[in-house]
Design a protein around this nucleic acid. Structure first.
Lengths: 358, 358
DNA sequence: TTGTATGCGTTATCAA
DNA sequence: TTGATAACGCATACAA
């Protein structure tokens, strides 16, 4: 008889310890962490408490081995602004690392092609991954969501404008965020404020615009249709919009662009016209992507907490995955996160104005 | 006595099957896949053959569980052009998925701060990951590589210009790639060719410039110092460079920028000056990042096969990790990949020229 | 140099 | 509703 050899430093909390502490068998703990229904409520609570107290995290490797399947979640993207994509990638990568699940990233093209092609892709996707993360604009693509629905893959929309019916969603309050930024500009002393809208196909665009208008109204600042330009979130559209706004007979003293890419474009155009930012023109963006600190001057912008949002999205997805495996149906959740106003150097009081009103 | 219950469809090839086929014990197979030295050469070969024949892939989950550690490799980045970063992320994510290893992405700031801070970060990094992937410009940052060397973490440089001594490297032949692109432009009929250099701190910059000059010389096209502008790979620097080049008394008919960001800037400036790309000016980039197809017209550029390169880099890193664990020393490898010329719409024959010479 | 016997942390199966 | 136990596929310690 040889003596048993311990191979771990026993540093990690395992399921046995939780079971012991909760006074149940380890199988019961397993059932709880996997969301099985057939556990008495009181038992479940005891287990949950033990889990919290010990700060137990299931070991992903052991799970994958025993269950013969790793948690794989797919991140789809399309029309990527590189800045937004890398932000998203960074965030989801973090989240995936925390939960020990695999991230599969795929470009979704031809969502507009619709029909059979989309369904075929969706079937493939259902084989490749247990859940799908949908950033804009994909979360609002009817053919895609229909195809995904068809193959029964759990989805969660991330950073959408509105919650897509039947799909979980993780987002910020775009309307309020735009309201906050606009109010900030007004406080700086701006009265002549321009706005560049985002892609009209994304609900977030309308919300941001709404926030802008309401903030003006709330502050009693007149709204001027001539200072609103259309855009689609791309740098190029920002260029056009900026040309338009800066050619106005009376120039706005500040321009709030619906995302950082377009804000960047505004700065470019302004500089070409020998306008100094922020002395002659304040520029505000939205998203706080990498670019915000790459351009000069650095952008004042609205930060979406992409990393925490991604983590929540992944957690939601994993949860949905488990429930689906047990043939339970899941209620779509709608999680709202707090945005943050990031003040950098692209905004200042307008020329000749003595700063604040408030 | 209960009968054994099989829980898998037995679809996967396991180490036992390989062992059986090779006529050895499973331990020997394990030794081979982990690169232990103490396996007779003939035995190793037999095992390798069995592995190939069965197409055996070790199960990452089982590995991680048994060894109490997942393969974790860190990807460091700094000064990220968002386009390049997302390209890199996409590529390494693919590679990581294939090998079942975890990707940890971190921003490295204050590499220039040097000294103690860098060493502290490096120590932390050594705890977080078994290997580090170093894209430019980090692979050429002396303080960083020194700090990493200090904590004995295996590193591999990806897409560097030159192989850093003592470090494995995965790259393309920048000089030849630039030569090819320049030759392509010459074949289109261009004789007045501008060039925008990259960051002088990165060796790839000099190589690309060299390729440009040599291609001119090889084709007997005169080189004009006035048509060369400095840059640092950023969009902003590209803007300045383009202004400079397009203000020249005699304008170049084509501009070859050392990366896509700067090429994008050239297009912006050209359009602002009412020059049509490619009718009045051809513009070529380098890297084939996402942006290349986002701008209008789409960029003719040089493609670095980032995804395969990342995979190779990860493989190299994992190999080095294993060897290090066994206290074997690893020879640095230098892997060269083939670039590809991507012809899109930003280049055309110059005005009034009848296309080709060749 | 190679092989034997466990152990890793979890889930699936089956019985209570 | 809960529990006991056998996989899961591989690596480590130790023996041969």
């Amino acid at each position: 008889m040889r003596k048993p050899v311990r191979r771990r430093a026993a540093a990690l909390v395992t399921i046995d310890q939780v079971a012991h502490r909760a006074g149940v068998s380890l199988m019961t703990v397993s059932r709880v962490t996997n969301g099985h229904e057939c556990v008495r409520e009181r038992t479940r609570e005891r287990v949950m408490r033990a889990i919290r107290e010990l700060n137990y995290k299931p070991n992903p490797a052991a799970r994958a081995l025993a269950a013969a399947r790793a948690d794989r979640i797919a991140l789809l993207y399309a029309n990527p602004s590189a800045g937004y994509l890398s932000e998203l990638l960074l965030g989801t990568l973090d989240g995936a690392g925390l939960t020990g699940c695999q991230l599969v990233v795929q470009k979704w093209e031809g969502a507009d092609g619709g029909g059979e092609r989309a369904r075929a892709r969706a079937r493939q996707l259902a084989r490749d991954a247990d859940g799908v993360l949908l950033p804009p604009p994909l979360c609002e693509s009817q053919p895609l969501t229909a195809a995904l629905e068809g193959v029964q893959v759990p989805c969660v929309a991330i950073a959408a404008g509105l919650a897509t019916p039947g799909m979980s969603c993780v987002r910020i309050d775009n309307r309020r965020a735009a309201h906050d930024m606009t109010t900030h500009l007004i406080r700086l002393g701006h009265r002549a404020m321009g706005f560049i809208k985002g892609d009209p196909n994304q609900s977030a665009s309308a919300q941001r615009f709404e926030g802008f208008r309401h903030a003006l109204a709330d502050a009693g600042v007149p709204f001027n249709e001539a200072w609103v330009a259309a855009g689609d979130f791309s740098y190029r559209s920002g260029l056009r919009a900026a040309e338009h706004l800066l050619a106005a007979r009376i120039r706005p003293t500040a321009i709030f662009a619906s995302n950082d890419d377009m804000a960047h474009a505004v700065i470019s155009v302004a500089q070409r016209r020998r306008l100094s930012v922020p002395r002659d023109l304040s520029v505000a963006g939205f998203d706080d992507t990498l670019m915000a600190t790459t351009v000069f001057p650095e952008l004042t912008t609205v930060r979406q907490p992409i990393a925490p949002m991604s983590q929540e999205a992944i957690a939601l997805l994993l949860e949905a995955t488990r429930r689906k495996r047990l043939n339970l149906d899941a209620e779509p959740e709608d999680r709202l996160f707090e945005h943050e106003l990031i003040e950098r150097d692209s905004c200042a009081p307008p020329r000749g104005a003595s700063s604040a009103t408030s």
